[in-house]
């Protein structure tokens, strides 16, 4: 049930929804979030039943004589230990197991660009702009046909995109809410993230690490093309880049040698 996808507003229920999910892996995060919420709501309701129920049933008016116990008899300890164990086993162990699986089998399974069809992009974050570098048709970074865009990320549907990221000045964070992922960009280091999207359209990219006065303005646009449109754009841009890019321009020369 994805009313948001259908553009239907469900009134106040809209406030309880994340942004639409356009990635192939976002459902893993959404499902785990929902499972966690379900479980914690269950236990929180139990706490509330205790809290409100006992407050009602055992107010001084209703219960004149309190039950004098230290709560340290064997049966009490068993109940308490049971509660602790129940919470841990039903929620914690489960969500850890699921998250670990998702990390090992999906999020940390970086695609191998030498053996798969992967679009590689280098990302440079700085105060207060996102720059993206594409290899262009020669599939090499650092050549004349590299396409460099600012605040403008374009990717095709149904293709794995592999990002290597860094920052020029302070720590930023590359956050795409509709993909459900973020990764910090750190000066002096290269971080990596991969994802794949399946719905064309225009979406927001934000910076999710305080980076100065205009941190809030560090918005980039994510444009998801069909494969055909993407190839057209890539070829066109690459041509323009090769013809107009000044090899002496320091602003364009920020790339680095791609290393796995």
């Amino acid at each position: 049930m994805n009313l948001l996808k259908m553009g239907v507003s469900a009134g106040w229920l809209d406030y309880f929804r994340p942004p639409e999910n356009i990635s192939t892996t976002g459902h893993l995060i959404d499902d785990l979030f929902n499972y966690t919420t379900l479980m914690v709501t269950f236990y929180f309701i139990l706490v509330c039943i205790g809290l409100f129920g006992f407050s009602y049933l055992y107010s001084r008016k209703r219960n004149k004589t309190p039950y004098y116990t230290y709560g340290n008899k064997k049966k009490h300890l068993i109940v308490t230990a049971f509660i602790g164990a129940a919470v841990f086993l039903s929620i914690d162990l489960n969500i850890t197991r699921i998250a670990n699986n998702d990390l090992v089998n999906t999020f940390w399974k970086f695609p191998d660009y030498k053996n798969e069809k992967v679009l590689r992009i280098e990302v440079m974050a700085q105060q207060w702009m996102w720059s993206f570098r594409y290899t262009g048709p020669d599939n090499e970074f650092g050549t004349a046909d590299d396409i460099v865009t600012n605040n403008d990320l374009r990717v095709p549907v149904n293709t794995k995109v592999l990002f290597h990221l860094t920052a020029k000045d302070v720590i930023h964070s590359f956050f795409v809410p509709t993909v459900r992922l973020k990764v910090d960009t750190i000066p002096g280091r290269i971080t990596r993230v991969w994802w794949e999207v399946n719905k064309p359209g225009k979406y927001d990219i934000a910076c999710a690490e305080m980076c100065g006065t205009h941190h809030y303005l560090m918005k980039a646009g994510l444009t998801v093309y069909t494969e055909e449109d993407f190839n057209k754009w890539l070829a066109n841009s690459s041509l323009i880049a090769a013809n107009t890019n000044d090899p002496q321009d320091a602003n364009l020369a920020w790339g680095w040698k791609w290393e796995e």
Binding site: V47, G50, L51, F54, S55, Y58, S59, R60, N63, K64, T65, P66, Y67, G71, H76, V79, T80, A81, I83, G84, A85, A86, V87, F88, I91, D92, L93, I95, T96, A99, N100
Partner: peptide, 30 residues
């Protein structure tokens, strides 16, 4: 870190249970 963070639930749940056990069958002044 993820796994260790999860373990904090256990003592937390225990003293929550104890808090509820304290007001259980009490004679509560509000």
């Amino acid at each position: 870190f993820m796994t260790l963070t999860m373990t904090i639930s256990i003592p937390s749940a225990i003293f929550f249970a104890n808090w509820l056990g304290t007001i259980w069958k009490g004679s509560i002044r509000f």
